[in-house]
Design a protein around this nucleic acid. Structure first.
Lengths: 142, 142
DNA sequence: TCTAGTTGTAACAAAGATAGTTACAATAAA
DNA sequence: TTTATTGTAACTATCTTTGTTACAACTAGA
């Protein structure tokens, strides 16, 4: 299963806010135009980012802004904000292995630390990349 | 989104085959009993593992076996076998960013290498764990 | 050769997630 | 007061996952 496009969408939204902040009011309609997704979807994602303290959204008057330095917002922050993973576990375990089987009884405890290692490796890489990196590369191309 | 339980299920199946190989014919029915999932689901996963050359399944007479050393089957091998990810990409990109927007035009190329770094970090950790590790820990507990 | 047990696969259903859409009350600035 | 915008509800369509029944194809052993 793939990680939902909400993640790339959220990064795109941040990039738009930063690039256009001085020249436009960056509304959900504006962002919908750049991302080519429905403005309601944009507002939902903005709501998740706002709940995580990563953006500010002006109710009524409209427009989104980024309340902290780009270098302090990592991909992991964004991932955690938009990718509402159950109990924070990347791997979905099959629910009821048979406890009367010596394998079924132990499979969970045997795998848990190994799956966590994989998840932590992924999260470590996510946290090593920030919006500052994204904007540096974006401005090079614009 | 979580990684499908097919992955933990597949590892469970391997563990069963290895533990019970000398005492039982390990059929899909047998594996369904230990994992507590439907035998057809087990057969589908066995089919994917077989296609990847990770198990052998005896048609007709029944029973699954592992045709190579446990140390040579990594979590990444199993992941790739059962987690049919579109074009091998972990991240789902939003489809049609607006090419007339300087951000929309460049977001894909800016993000691609960064998302690949995350995916590679995860795959590297997956490939560092083998069924040998799983069976060592399992046998300790049995 | 016949039988019993098993695999491979099709067809379908239920549940959950994703993504899109319309609609509208609440809000804030001009 | 008007206008633009946000936040959210309600609904839909599509896709994926998982479960289920059914059955043809297959193999070993009686």
């Amino acid at each position: 299963m793939q990680i939902s496009s909400r993640f790339t969408l959220a990064v795109h939204i941040f990039a738009c806010i930063d690039v256009f902040k001085d020249d436009y009011k960056v509304t959900s309609e504006f962002l919908a135009g750049s991302t080519n997704v429905n403005p309601v979807i944009v507002r939902k994602i903005l709501g998740q980012l706002k709940a995580a303290g990563l953006v500010e959204v002006a109710r009524g008057s409209g427009g989104a802004s980024i309340p902290k330095p780009l270098g302090e917002i990592s991909f992991l922050d964004i991932y955690n904000a938009v990718e509402c993973i159950e109990k924070g576990e990347l791997f979905h375990f099959h629910e009821n292995p048979n406890a009367e089987c010596p394998v079924g009884r132990n499979i969970h405890v045997v795998l848990d630390d190994k799956l966590m290692r994989v998840q932590k490796a992924m999260e470590a890489e996510l946290s090593s990349i920030t919006l500052e990196d994204v904007m540096r590369d974006t401005r090079k191309l614009i």
